[in-house]
């Protein structure tokens, strides 16, 4: 994600060969802002009186063991450190209804800063875009900052007869492998299929795999012939030579030697990515929100956290709270464009 040749979603006019993207500028600004705020508040991390000795729960809307759980558990101690000595930050798993229970818990929480949550984009955007009944509204949440972001890669098996994107587009039968309906991966797959004009071939969507690793192994086994995976999870299968990457989303390739969709002529797929961001309930007091956002920025700039994140293979791509809120708005606009392509391909 740290590529230097990225077209930015915030400023599409920025040329692809410009040295820095808006996102990387954003990241640098985050660090600069964190450093400045540290200077202004002295060496001791700023604690806010409203949060003195508070216990803050970061709601993970899934069961322990997944990527969200890992991210929050790695981040919580560093966030607590930046909020002041008496503050405790605890991960709290609230699984249920495909994450909606946890999201609703954050949405309905008292806006006192003691209940925050981690949200997956576009995972939590999609039900709203598709008009499903949900007990939250992402646009009303108080966004504290983005932790992770990663691009998608289009994959085929190394044993496949197909060699490149043109072969995939020319193939008679396309069978995509993916997780179930409502997942970010299936939505990304459907969007890519639409843009590559593969929907004309009535592709099979072999959805319902339990996780990313499951369908990538299915691709190696030959259950289907094409899949779209988040770059970090797919990397190990690419490095082992089991899977072959054909193209990546984003403005600059996060996989050396692999072209971006933009370079192959599908520029509107550049914005397709997967993000994990932290938010609190709607109506957080402005001062409290600023405290949380500043602590967030200092935590993500903490070299110890960066080392932990690298170790834990987090796709760290910090973004400040206000920019994260703008990103959410853009996600809605982006996915609304593809709304008609996002219906369940296996609906009875």
């Amino acid at each position: 994600m740290s590529s230097k040749k990225r077209r930015c979603r915030h400023c599409p006019s920025r040329a692809s060969n410009q040295v820095m993207s808006c996102r990387s500028i954003g990241v640098r600004c985050c660090f600069l802002f964190a450093a400045l705020s540290s200077l202004l508040t002295g060496c001791d991390p700023a604690g806010d009186q409203q949060l003195d000795n508070a216990t803050i729960a970061i709601v993970i809307p899934y069961r322990p063991g997944g990527g969200f759980d890992r991210t929050v558990r790695a981040f919580a101690p560093y966030f607590a450190r930046q909020l002041g000595a008496g503050v405790t930050v605890l991960p709290e798993n609230v699984p249920g209804a495909g994450g909606r229970r946890g999201a609703a818990k954050v949405y309905r929480a008292r806006p006192d800063g003691t209940t925050l949550g981690i949200f997956n984009l576009p995972g939590f955007v999609l039900p709203e875009v598709l008009g499903e009944k949900v007990d939250y509204d992402l646009r009303e949440l108080s966004w504290i900052g983005r932790l992770e972001s990663q691009d998608y890669v289009l994959l085929i098996s190394a044993a496949s007869e197909l060699q490149n994107l043109d072969d995939v587009r020319a193939a008679d039968e396309i069978s995509f492998l993916s997780t179930g309906y409502g997942s970010s991966v299936l939505a990304a797959t459907q969007i890519i299929a639409e843009r590559l004009a593969l929907t004309d071939k009535s592709p099979i969507y072999l959805a319902g795999y339990a996780g990313t690793a499951d369908y990538l192994v299915g691709l190696i086994r030959g259950d289907g012939n094409v899949a779209v995976g988040p770059v970090s999870t797919s990397l190990k299968y690419i490095e082992s030579g089991d899977l072959r990457p054909l193209a990546v989303t984003g403005d600059g390739s996060s996989l050396p030697g692999v072209p971006t969709f933009t370079e192959l002529g599908f520029a509107d797929l550049a914005a397709l990515d997967l993000q994990r961001s932290i938010a609190g309930p709607p109506g957080l007091d402005a001062e409290l929100l600023t405290t949380l956002r500043e602590a967030f920025l200092r935590a993500v700039a903490d070299p110890e956290f960066i080392a932990t994140a690298r170790n834990a293979r987090l796709d760290l791509s910090p973004l400040a709270g206000a920019a994260t809120a703008a990103e959410i708005e853009e996600s809605f606009t982006f996915y609304e464009t593809f709304k008609t392509n996002l219906k369940n391909p296996n609906a009875l």
Binding site: G96, A97, R100, G180, S183, A207, G208, N344, N346
Partner: peptide
């Protein structure tokens, strides 16, 4: 999550 429907959840989120 293949058919995209909630079954026998009798309107309770917990059963999703």
């Amino acid at each position: 999550d293949i058919g995209g429907t909630a079954r026998y959840t009798i309107g309770i989120d917990f059963l999703w």
